[in-house]
Amino acid sequence: MSESETQTPDRKELITEVPSALVSIRNLSLWYGAKQALDKIDFEIPRKKITAFIGPSGCGKSTLLRCLNRLNDLVDGVRMEGDILMEGSSVNDPEIDVNMLRKRVGMVFQKSNPFPKSIYENVAYGLRIHGVTSRRELDEIVERSLKQAALWDEVKDRLDDSALGMSGGQQQRLCIARALAVDPEVILLDEPCSALDPIATGHIEELMQSLKDEYTMVIVTHNMQQASRVSDYTAFLYLGELVEYKETEKLFLTPASRRTEDYITGRFG
């Protein structure tokens, strides 16, 4: 899998330490059956910052992201080595409740996936799952989440309409509101704008900036401009390996690896 590089900068130059790590990925390898999708990934994700994963498609970005909330558990034939620690404890610990982990680590998907329910029920769903029954509390949190997701003004008069009648950008913001409603610490976003037009993309990016102070966010993106616009740290993955990881500005201006440079200058990918 790993091609030897012409000149090999040492790890310190390629992968930076972060000031306050929330998630530590430790030597993580993952196989789908016989196919290896991640190869000894090892880095840390900082608290209350936006971290971007970039890389050509098929390099393992989504796979890595889905390890963080253990969504890969559902795939048959997945095997993992290494570990992921969140605030020091392993997310793969059989003792921990995976549903509580997923409550802490919310996720927004590449293709917006609102439930075939009303707008209100979409946001209230996670709350109901986690035992909120009081109508007042539900109303309050739904409103707050929709406001946080900058959607409230657009939908406040039609909360009972089907979520599937909204535009793509609205649906994606609804999915963000849905994730926010259960009060997560981390929000994972897997190419949240890939199906959206530039204006809707702009909305989502603004939204991310406004949420940055309160949440740790990890965004997978195909789009290097987006990564450089929104993220504080960027990880470049290539063929299942972590090639380079550092502050976004540094990665884009002074990449240490040839492969990173080739990728961000558009020579491949």
Partner: peptide, 23 residues
């Protein structure tokens, strides 16, 4: 993706099945 959306919110498989998939 609809099922994953529910699971990613911390719903169990049972909840996902009966509150999202069946409806």
């Amino acid at each position: 993706s609809t099922r994953e959306g529910s699971l990613a919110l911390g719903a169990t498989k049972f909840e996902t099945t009966w509150k999202v998939v069946v409806p």
